[in-house]
Amino acid sequence: MWSFIHKLGSPPWFFRFGGSLVRWLLPLTLILLLVGAFWGLLVAPPDFRQGNSYRIIYIHVPAAVVALAGYYVMALAGAISLIWRIKMADIAMKAAAPVGAVLTGIALVTGAIWGKPTWGTWWVWDARITSMLILFFLYLGVVALFEAYENKAAAAKACAVLSLVGTVNIPIIYKSVDWWYSLHQPASIKFTGESAIDASMLYPLLLMIVAFYGLFAVTVVMNMRAELIWHHRQSAWVRQWAGLD
């Protein structure tokens, strides 16, 4: 166990390990996405009240769920980077930020598109939607901050502090629909007790959530590999990988 964690910190080892991970996880994720989208779009029944517009749930909810979980991944990498000064943690943080930003963007845009036919408006400044917008800006802030610094160590430190400060937003997003009066409805999937969504609609949703987790893992590892190559472009193992020597 410890030796595995130790190996994760080694750039050439992680690069090879990540490569083989992507090779099987990427096709698996794409298959899950296709099956889940097909199931949700064409097989699942319509909702008794919303009709077919609810089918946006199959991308909106997974994108939002993984955007929140991904923030914890980024903040954890930030904490590791601050405490143990492990370079791989900096790289993981830098790799996760754009993925999280895109997923949050998807959740916001699909939510707006869903809001128009169901609520009657694209946008409303309620607690859930506003806190989600803040999450989007936090992700973008980390992306921008990494670019703003010449010094990589200073950039990683600033980004780690920003992502740690931002973690407070995550429970706020989760609980916003319970703590305040909002237009957004409370969660349908419940970890304790029966879900408020029929099984025939729930299964494709769970499948899509798993697929989006896979997608997050694959894209973060792919970003990390591209970043590692650039960090170590002068080292022997990269030259070997490129086919030199």
Binding site: I56, I106, V109
Partner: peptide, 8 residues
């Protein structure tokens, strides 16, 4: 609405 969301 649905296809626009999926396309994006």
């Amino acid at each position: 609405y649905v296809w626009l969301a999926y396309a994006i």
